[in-house]
C-alpha cells in the first residue's frame, strides 16, 4: 500500500502558527466538545511576549523556535475506494507560542467576598 504526500502547490510552504499549552483543555460537552468554542484572548506586551487569558487563568509565555519544522498535512477526499490515499501539505510551523509557566488565577471578586 502506498500513501502519497503531495507538496504544497506553491513551492514556498505557507507558515502557520502553533500554540503549545502545558495542560489540557476541557469542555463540559461530550459530543464535539470544542467545536466553535472560544478559547481566550491572546495579547502581546510591549516587549513582544505573548499572554493568553483562558477563563480565570492568565498564562504568560514566550516565542520558541521549533527544533524541526512541523508540516501540516490534509487528507484528500477520495472519489472512490480504489483510489490511492493522498495527503497535501497545507502549511508548516517553524515557531510556537509556548505557555509552559504556571497559570496565574484571576481572583477579581475575592476582595469583595472577604469584605463581606
Amino acid at each position: 500500500m502506498q500513501i502519497i504526500i503531495n507538496p504544497h502547490k506553491n513551492l514556498k510552504i505557507p507558515i502557520w502558527s502553533m500554540i503549545e499549552l502545558q495542560g489540557d483543555l476541557q469542555s463540559n460537552e461530550k459530543a464535539a466538545p470544542f467545536h466553535g468554542k472560544i478559547i481566550g484572548d491572546l495579547h502581546y506586551n510591549l516587549e513582544g511576549e505573548p499572554m493568553l487569558i483562558i477563563g480565570h487563568h492568565v498564562l504568560t509565555g514566550r516565542i520558541a523556535k521549533l527544533e524541526k519544522p512541523l508540516a501540516i498535512l490534509k487528507k484528500k477526499q477520495k472519489e472512490d475506494e480504489f483510489e490511492v490515499t493522498e495527503y497535501e501539505v497545507q502549511g508548516m510551523v517553524v515557531q510556537k507560542l509556548l505557555f509552559s509557566e504556571r497559570p496565574r488565577p484571576i481572583v477579581a471578586n475575592a476582595d469583595a467576598i472577604f469584605v463581606k
Binding site: L11, F34, K37, I38, G40, D41, L42, L73, K75
Partner: peptide, 28 residues
C-alpha cells in the same frame, strides 16, 4: 488582541515533523 476560537468543524490535519531531507524534497 487576538481572540482564539475553535473552528466549527475539526479539520482532518496530521502533523509530520520535517527533517532536512524531507523539507528539501517538498520544497523542490
Amino acid at each position: 488582541t487576538q481572540i482564539l476560537k475553535f473552528s466549527e468543524e475539526e479539520a482532518a490535519y496530521t502533523c509530520l515533523e520535517l527533517n532536512k531531507e524531507l523539507l528539501e524534497t517538498l520544497e523542490s
